[in-house]
Design a binder for these strands. Structure first.
Lengths: 197, 197
DNA sequence: CATATATTCGGATCAGTGATCCGGATAAGG
DNA sequence: CCTTATCCGGATCACTGATCCGAATATATG
């Protein structure tokens, strides 16, 4: 890649991160290009679609998240590891307002730029969940996809301005449900536990 | 209102319901007008904004929902009433894909056309929740707004194609958390219970 | 250092959206 | 049947993301 192109790319990423942080994932690409002092076509050449731009912005965050899952797997109790990782996931999704919808769409669209990162993240969560389930501190009637869905729903909640104040509390409520007494999780095992991602 | 205007309005509502049912709340207004055999301006005169159109489509459903809450309040046990009403709420929100986001926005925007309906609905849910809390079958550390938020999150979950299959199961998980043992709800009462809406 | 060429840039443009305006068509009332 | 108030819808505007192509520029070579 030519030096000037690389400079433009990096600059665009920085500006895009700022604009999307304050306006959400639906920010106007024209605005981003304008604030970067660049033509719209240039932005769209480096990142052919909004999804590609977000992928570039999120990839590192996602990878850090799966790495953190690996650390927690050995440094904390199964229960604490799961909960604090879930909290980190929700916080990460809050970095850019509206990003969870893209993630849920990407996880089943194998063509999506975000697909791989999302699947990897879900797998990391699945491992933490399985460990807690094996330790008997997490209900066994949910799997990694359920976990992903709950995190997405909680992150979405925090994205809605009117519900943001409740997001933390409701995180505790849902986390409590995940860790709920084995009594419930073990009662009916009609669901195959820990589906492999 | 002139007879032809009323006819157009009713016809538009019917077509809009069909189109939005299959395409979601972001359906093109031009499409709706075209399929109704009418100019875009006519659609926008009867319903000046998309929100107004959705309000007209949803108002009856919402009112039915609050009415149903009233019935359940006397016909079922506090626990059953709450859960089955919540289920009805989620089902109603599924009538049109993407409508929950509008609802969460409308509930704090007093200028919104949907505001009144949403507030009324939340109040109905608050009553059912309070009854269950008084009966000791619902945790007391959540209020009507929390309930509204959880329903919205569950409905949103069902809107995401990749997560739809899990929506029912996760409803049970969350409902179980709401009805969770008094032990949890009574432990810390740092939250004011049953806020009045 | 000068030239050639391959790469990158950005203004102009296209189809799409919701919204607005106004001249023409039409129904209601006498 | 005629008047008038009402309603209709094509044309238009500002905005969106996306695409094209001539112009500008950086890199590599002589």
């Amino acid at each position: 890649m030519r030096a000037d192109a690389r400079k433009n790319r990096d600059h665009l990423l920085a500006i895009a991160g700022a604009v999307i942080t304050e306006q959400g994932v639906d920010a106007s690409l024209r605005d981003i290009a304008r604030r970067a002092g660049v033509g719209l076509a240039t932005l769209l050449r480096h990142f052919p679609t909004r999804e590609a731009l977000l992928d570039a912005l999120l990839r590192t965050s996602f990878d850090e998240l799966t790495a953190r899952a690996g650390e927690l797997e050995t440094s904390s109790s199964p229960e604490d590891a799961l909960v604090s990782w879930l909290r980190a996931c929700v916080a990460c999704a809050h970095e850019y307002r509206g990003v969870v919808a893209l993630m849920t769409a990407a996880i089943e669209d194998t063509e999506s730029a975000l697909h791989a990162s999302c699947v990897t993240m879900r797998a990391a969560g699945t491992r933490l969940l399985a460990r807690a389930q094996a330790a008997g501190t997490a209900r066994t009637d949910i799997d990694g996809t359920d976990l992903f869905a709950l995190v997405a729903a909680l992150a979405w909640l925090g994205d809605q301005p009117s519900l943001t104040p409740r997001a933390d509390h409701l995180f505790d409520v849902v986390a409590g449900a995940i860790l709920a007494s084995a009594e419930k999780g073990d009662a009916g095992d009609k669901r195959r536990p820990q589906t492999r991602d």
